[in-house]
Amino acid sequence: MVIAVRSAWREVPPQQVHRFATLALAEVPSLAHEIFREIRHEYPQLPLILDESGEPRALVGIRQSLEHFVAHLTNGMDRPLVHPRVFQEFGRGEGIQGRSLDVLQAIYRLGVRLAWRRLAEIGQEVAIPAPAMYELAESGFEYLDGLVAESVRGYAEAAARQAGERLRMQRRLMDQLFAEPDHPLLTERARLLGWPLPERVAVAVLLRPDREAVAPAVADGILLDMECERPRLVVPDPEAPGRRELLARAAAGWSGAIGPAVPPLDAAKSLRWAASAVDLMERGLLPAGELLQCTEHTEALVLLPPGELIEDLTRRRLAPLAHCGPTHGRRLAETLLAWLETRGGAPEIATRLGVHPQTVRYRLRQIRELWDGELDDPDRRFELELVLRARRLRGELG
């Protein structure tokens, strides 16, 4: 069952409503000027913006809103309102200037208060009943809400445009950093963005946890490009106290790596190392689930990326193990690596490997026989340690 809501305004005789609207429309020009003057008095800091005809846009908006509202009264206050679009422009202007909407809303409330004072006087002149005037006041505040909504829409649009333009400028700056940097151009793009060019930067490369992942909540000053398949960050002054911890918290839930700190003109080098570390993450050769520091994984980054070179060197230097069988060959390789790293005696190596010293002595004799005199050559020892460390990094040795 639908219960009809009684409207005091609709019960006012049409002739009386028409008389009220006629008087109100006649007052609109002078009332608009009065409201405009009061606003200029209360908020003298607001800029005076003129339209194409040289008339203040604020005055035009006030007049249009009054005319719209009065026209609304003659239709029983039940017709959907189309608010003047100029109020979107007001909100858009506040957004472009970087101000909040608080002052604008205060101005709207001031205008409604002044307008209501005059409408109440006209209501008394034509003997509009008090309940109908109360309903008119409620309608006025609803109308105010609509004006605010228009301004919020314009404000949001301006904010979105500015954010989009800033992101485009940020990506252009990052592209310049990663290309062959032209120092004057780089400085100019940084200036336009309001990004003080730091002495050193570090570049991070991220792996998306999923396609809909929320962007890391990085601090001001950190450049972020989410348009890449692998999002990238440029971190100014990465060695500043607390910077690493803040960045780790911002990137919580993301996997990635941050390259070494370099001068801005060498940002591409930091990017290359970070990308290389992320490649190793995807291959399962570096741990995922956090933001790794490349400088803490130098061994893996040096030995693992040039896979073909290391594999060829491994094939040649570990050829003596080819006929030892996989299990025994792995044990000999682990013993040889422990000896190369420590150059210690059997007891020390045995402790490292968790076996008996006599077992180590037996394996070392075999190793000497397999490699003959090569172990006396420092270059051969260096190459053997390289390939054995690479095998350990790949998880092929204990």
Rank of each mutant, 00 (worst) to 15 (best):
R331E: 15
L144C: 11
L321P: 02
V86E: 12
R153F: 09
L246N: 11
L321E: 03
H356C: 04
R57F: 04
A257L: 04
D220A: 14
V218K: 01
L384W: 02
V28M: 07
L48A: 09
W116G: 10
R200L: 07
K269E: 14
T359E: 13
Q366Y: 01
R368M: 05
L384C: 10
H18E: 13
L301M: 05
A127L: 09
I107T: 07
L192F: 11
I310V: 15
D210G: 13
F87Q: 05
S30V: 10
L144N: 08
E34Q: 15
R391T: 01
D220Y: 03
G344A: 11
R381N: 03
P231M: 10
E282P: 10
E369C: 08
F90L: 10
T351R: 09
D51M: 09
L265T: 10
W195A: 04
T342K: 09
P287E: 13
H33F: 09
R189S: 04
G123I: 01
V302S: 05
V17K: 02
E290H: 12
E121N: 01
K269P: 03
A149D: 13
R331S: 14
G373P: 08
E227Q: 13
P129M: 04
V235N: 01
Q97D: 12
R392L: 09
E55I: 12
D379Q: 14
H72N: 06
R391Q: 12
F90V: 09
L332D: 03
P184E: 15
G140A: 15
L101N: 02
G91N: 08
G373Q: 13
E27P: 01
W273E: 02
Q88T: 06
R168C: 08
E34Y: 08
L104K: 00
A300S: 12
D225I: 11
V126S: 04
P241C: 06
A251Y: 01
G307S: 14
P14M: 11
G61S: 15
T295S: 09
E180A: 15
E348L: 12
D225T: 10
R200F: 04
A319C: 06
S151Y: 05
E341P: 00
M174T: 08
R92Q: 13
E348A: 15
G307H: 14
P347W: 05
W371P: 04
H297R: 10
N75T: 15
L185P: 00
C324N: 05
V234Y: 00
A204R: 00
G395S: 07
A275S: 14
A179T: 08
G398L: 11
Q162F: 07
E296L: 14
Q45P: 00
Q16V: 14
F382R: 15
E396K: 13
E311K: 08
V152W: 02
E383G: 12
Q88D: 08
V235R: 00
L397S: 05
A219L: 10
L318W: 00
P196K: 06
Q124V: 10
P264R: 00
E282A: 10
Y155K: 02
V278H: 00
E385R: 15
I49P: 03
W254E: 01
V148A: 11
Q358K: 13
E227C: 07
H33C: 13
E308A: 13
P47I: 12
L50M: 07
E94K: 09
L207C: 03
Q366L: 12
P84N: 11
E121Y: 03
L233K: 06
E38N: 08
R19G: 00
V278E: 02
L301Q: 01
A160L: 14
R191M: 12
S100N: 12
